[in-house]
């Protein structure tokens, strides 16, 4: 896998997407309550084209829930969530790809997982073979194409999940802690892949607890605390001058209770 995009520093500007892009995505005073428990409250945020947004915050702050709402897997119980292209239909959901923290791979080979995705996303049969090779190369998994996806290492599984998501040619890629529990080498490979996704014109939203990773990758940071957005700011401002005590404590590695 090429890491040119990482070693050259900031990424190339993402190519513009078409007029049917789901971006920008906006949450306006969104809330989510289940069984009487409010998990998100009065959340307003905006995901913009070409900006890598890191969502940070302690466990249970509502970060993953935000991703599920943006993807359309769940629906807000209050407020409005809008995509530029209009309401997201089940098939329109393909414009917003999500990679879960624990990769859910089919009981198939690496190539089998990608073939399934390409078919599901409606890629014409004649184009699938070439795209399969391209995606395998992008993930650095060509040599493991026939290996069962479920016996790959955690890092390899996560890379496969990311390129499977890219098979949809999405406008927006939502990554839920893609490098949790990975070693620095595997983390670096995932970050390279994220850069390559951006170079393809994909806007990325990244949930992460890794402050160093957010510093390396993010353009904007959204900080959530107990289901509320407490900061939404360019990354530089967030790391240099956090505006809330919670964010400052989080960045300093102090426990948020």
């Amino acid at each position: 896998m090429s890491d040119a995009l990482v070693t050259t520093g900031r990424r190339a500007l993402a190519p513009a997407r078409g007029p049917d892009s789901v971006l920008p995505v906006a949450m306006d005073r969104v809330g989510y309550t289940i069984d009487g428990v409010t998990l998100l409250d009065d959340v307003s945020l905006r995901i913009r084209q070409g900006r890598l947004t890191a969502i940070m915050g302690a466990n249970g702050a509502g970060k993953t829930l935000c991703l599920r709402l943006i993807q359309g897997l769940l629906h807000p119980t209050a407020g409005t969530l809008s995509h530029a292209s209009g309401p997201v239909t089940p098939t329109g959901r393909r414009r917003i790809a999500i990679v879960f923290q624990r990769p859910m791979l089919l009981r198939r080979s690496v190539a089998g997982n990608l073939r399934h995705a390409l078919k599901t996303y409606g890629v014409p049969r004649a184009e699938r073979a070439a795209m399969l090779v391209e995606l395998l190369d992008l993930a650095g998994l060509r040599a493991l194409a026939q290996r069962s996806a479920r016996v790959l290492s955690s890092g390899e599984q996560q890379r496969l999940s990311i390129v499977r998501a890219l098979a949809a040619d999405p406008d927006l890629l939502l990554l839920d802690e893609p490098t949790a529990n990975l070693d620095p080498y595997a983390t670096r490979m995932i970050e390279t892949l994220i850069r390559q996704a951006e170079a393809r014109g994909v806007t990325v939203v990244l949930v992460t607890h890794d402050v160093g990773q957010a510093r390396r990758l993010a353009d904007d940071v959204i900080f959530l605390n107990r289901g509320r957005v407490t900061e939404q700011t360019p990354a530089g401002s967030f790391f240099d001058e956090p505006q809330t005590a919670e964010a400052a404590a989080y960045l300093a590695g102090r426990l948020l209770l």
Binding site: T89, P90, T91
Partner: peptide, 20 residues
């Protein structure tokens, strides 16, 4: 139960889910 969220996130049809 294991595949549901992944398949829904891919916008798969019911027929597609059954075949998968």
């Amino acid at each position: 139960q294991e595949y549901d969220e992944q398949l829904r996130s891919m916008g798969i049809t019911t027929t597609g889910a059954v075949l998968t």
